[in-house]
Design a binder for these strands. Structure first.
Lengths: 365, 365
DNA sequence: GTGAAAGCGCTAACAA
DNA sequence: TTGTTAGCGCTTTCAC
């Protein structure tokens, strides 16, 4: 009977361990014959703790695979060690839009955040709901926010920034704007793309994108500027709004064609839109780039693999993602951060027709 | 001078508010003239609190836009209200692979998680590092894990499951496996796809995918089964391993072609791979589907927009994502969950050549 | 170099 | 119906 309590205890201990995370700092302290404080110091690399003691503690920690509870740690230290990424339009009409551009950017953000030793909370709150974004930090869930795309939330974002909330947004730099943004030079990128089309002897160029989005509005300005430089007046009939989803772009393009509009080129505001547009064109028996030249935007990985390969404006997601994160951490650290506009690069491939009069990839018609 | 302290206080209060989340439950309690506990009860909808009191508290909460600190709440209640999604290969050689299939699934998972009122932590720890996955819950950061793809981590996942960690993985259901999975019927899906190819009079069918991944191994079994049913013996020369990245698939396909292999169809293990393969084929002057029929896997949104439109095996990410989450919550709630294998559907489009002898989309060559 | 004690902001017995 | 009292697991003065 003397054994019974021991056995029971063992069992309980076993159950406790099975039920996870059961061993806590106090337990380690007891086993090491020191106090909780010493363990805490040892684990945080304090120089005040005896080397021998530290080693003993370390060993215990390893053998019991103890991990400090970051939740409790954060509560005490006043931070969360996690930042939130808010993606707009992760769903549109309950459907994922799944634009590869987002994943690429997200991937780089995830990398950078991990490099800082932080966790990443992914939120599907659209930027339209800035109150939800505020909640994320007000409820102590994250230390700062990255919003991908400002969409229609400009005012809400201004409000958050005014409240002193650490926040960086991927998007356009608007005049009089107080939150910090990272984004490509939309105006210049679009202008260069359209100028390239014009250089291919195209004059009636469709603008495919929704100007309610700030970035798209800037691209439209670039489009107009390029036309103006060539003495072409923009035709309102060729201004075709569309959302970023493939289906929407397909529909928009289709109705343009069936409406009998005449055009010889398309500037699409994303590669996904461009691809859908090409599909629509080919479905109607039009050849790309012979009949209609097409330029996209983003340079998603698939752009090079599409058929025809897509001429497009590259957005550098690698440095963009890293910048987003660095600027956010600067704010969290109390430093001031300034918006950055990334340069943009035109990648010429087959879809714009330029390759026809020059180096053509064998077999790429 | 009587005003001075007041002014200072106001400023300090202002600063405090600006510095965020400054107002806490105690403050609300004091203002409402009740105790912290009453506020807590009121906010959690306890029926024990007086309606009039609750209203008063509610008003204070609104006007001060107070939000309970979920981190402290979680510490006390013993949960985190967040679950982690671990994505394999979010980066490969430091490059995002950005397979749209992942984003689609992730989007649906995000939806389902949000419906449960939970947050979603995105981790780039590959499934190879199951210790890192364990840390996520051991350090109290999340209540459970969803791994997308088991990849090479089968044993590690088994260990986690054995430890009683709430865990669901998207992938193949392996024999003798103890963790719960959700995935499509890879074997049947592949078999149907290959049978379809055979029905188009194709006999020399390339298998494009890496069999070290469990799901792919099952698809290969389906491939072999379909061939066997038609009395065709699999040719090792047509078994072409490739990773999921576009570039890798392109290279693999190219070297197959240049190696002089003879084949009339390709079964690709993902749509991204299929698209890259088609690019490689066309670059070499081969026509799809006339010379080579191609079938993909996943049915990503772009599949329908590719040129030629892709015949593919659809994986239902919507119900898959929801199932993943539901099964995880079942485990967290202490219920037992059983693995689910989703049925699979062959979506026939132009790339497999079937449309040639029937309804062809106009202009789709 | 180490320990005791006081919280971080919240919830949950237990009283009243 | 409400208040009081303990903590959740950790860090950090302040003593020794």
């Amino acid at each position: 009977m003397a054994d019974k309590p021991a056995a029971t205890a063992a069992t309980q201990e076993g159950q406790a361990r099975a039920k996870m995370g059961a061993v806590k700092m106090d337990d380690i302290a007891r086993m090491a014959g020191v106090s909780k404080s010493t363990v805490s110091r040892a684990l945080s690399g304090s120089p005040l703790v005896n080397e021998e003691t530290r080693a003993r503690i370390q060993a215990l920690v390893e053998s019991h695979s103890y991990r400090v509870d970051t939740r409790a740690q954060g509560l005490r230290k006043g931070h969360t060690h996690t930042i939130a990424v808010v993606i707009p339009l992760l769903h549109e009409h309950d459907q994922p839009i799944s634009d590869p551009f987002f994943l690429e950017l997200l991937g780089h953000i995830a990398d950078a955040v991990a490099d800082h030793g932080y966790d990443l909370l992914l939120s599907k709150i659209g930027p339209g709901r800035t109150d939800g974004m505020a909640d994320l930090v007000d409820t102590g869930r994250v230390d700062g926010l990255i919003a991908i795309g400002q969409s229609t939330a400009h005012l809400g974002l201004e409000r958050l920034a005014a409240r002193g909330m650490p926040l960086v947004v991927w998007g356009a730099q608007l005049p009089e704007q107080h939150y910090v943004t990272v984004g490509s030079d939309n105006r210049a990128g679009a202008e260069r793309a359209v100028a390239h089309l014009i250089a291919q002897e195209r004059r009636r160029i469709v603008f495919l994108g929704q100007r309610t989005v700030p970035e798209i509005r800037l691209r439209h300005e670039g489009y107009v500027a390029a036309l103006a430089a060539a003495g072409i007046e923009p035709d309102p009939a060729l201004d075709v709004p569309t959302r970023f989803a493939s289906a929407a772009a397909l529909t928009a393009m289709r109705s343009l064609i069936c409406g009998g509009a005449s055009f010889d080129a398309v500037f699409a505001c994303s590669d996904v839109i461009a691809i859908s547009a090409i599909r629509a064109l080919q479905d109607q028996g039009l050849k790309v780039p012979e009949d209609v030249a097409v330029v996209g935007y983003d340079d998603i990985q698939m752009a090079a693999f599409y058929n025809p390969a897509l001429t497009t404006v590259r957005q550098d997601t690698a440095t963009g993602g890293r910048l987003l994160v660095d600027l956010l951490f600067a704010q969290i650290a109390g430093r001031t951060a300034r918006s950055v506009m990334l340069p943009t690069e035109l990648v010429v491939r087959a879809s714009s027709g330029a390759a026809l009069s020059g180096t053509t990839t064998p077999g790429s018609r």
